[in-house]
């Protein structure tokens, strides 16, 4: 499964499905990461985590553990 966690820096990916449940999933969706949205992977923190992405015109940083729940293509 291709997830946001292993998407290359500088690439743009499209969300296919969100895994997980409850508060974490809802929070990710509330931030605008929903099915079908394009995400631009901007950069990764100096120590490799978290990642910074551009979604719906703003910048968001999220941990790789959470990014691993976002299936992309």
């Amino acid at each position: 499964m291709q997830t946001l966690k292993n998407a290359a820096i500088g690439s743009t990916v499209r969300v296919v499905k969100l895994h997980g449940e409850g508060a974490v999933k809802r929070r990710i969706m509330d931030m605008g990461i929903t099915k079908g949205v394009d995400i631009y992977v901007r950069k990764v923190a100096p120590l490799g985590d978290p990642v910074e992405v551009m979604v719906r015109g703003y910048e968001l940083s999220l941990r790789k553990a959470d990014a691993g729940m976002i299936e992309v293509e």
Binding site: G22, A23, I28, M31, P50, S61, L62
Partner: peptide, 9 residues
Amino acid sequence: EPAPFVMEL
């Protein structure tokens, strides 16, 4: 407790 770390810069 949940700790989804999503943060705006």
